[in-house]
Amino acid sequence: MIKAVPKPLEEVLGQVKDFTKVLIVGCDGCVTVCEAGGMKEAKVLASALRLYFTQAGKQAQIDETSLTRQCEKEYLAQLSDKMDIYDAVVSLACGCGVQYMAEMYNNKIIYPGVDTCFLGVNEERGLYVERCQACGRCILAETGGICPIARCSKRMLNGPCGGSDAGKCEINKDIPCGWELIYERLKTLGQLDRFEKPVDPKDWSTSRDGGPRTIVREDLRI
């Protein structure tokens, strides 16, 4: 799932401090799971903003709500009748949700309330780790189910480099060397022969390098 972290409160304060009617919109999708932008976080942010405006002696209306998903128009449309009330909106969705909201409410000022980070897993509550870079052409079948693009700091397809040390990455002792993980897994699976076969340069055109991406599924479209 998409992982995000709340933006520092002072950054959000700096953006909304000159408005008087602000709506905080959480998203019940990915950002709720990583506790960065769900209904709960929307409430906390709204309360903090109310405290800020009140102590500053300013009359302000700060409300909060949350939508099932901000990456779908049907859910964003649920805001249509109350949007006019507000001067600005803080969206706690990932970057997709923030943009889709801005697209749908073209004349409204929309601020992001979270920093969207990566596609990852929940190792524990409060510990989220990247696993996928959405390169558009999955090679996990060849690499023992461990992605070198997401898990090697140099996204090497023929790793590990000479900097791995005691199973850790050269850039940080807390990051496992992705290629040592791959090597060990291939060994476990009896597929070490894969390890000595050079992997050709990757076609990055399905990744970010190919420009903004679109999926067209004719089988699903009317």
Binding site: L9, A48, L49, L51, Y52, Q55, A56
Partner: peptide, 9 residues
């Protein structure tokens, strides 16, 4: 406590 510091309470 951190929030209260930042919002001036």
């Amino acid at each position: 406590k951190e929030i209260l510091d930042k919002v001036g309470v």
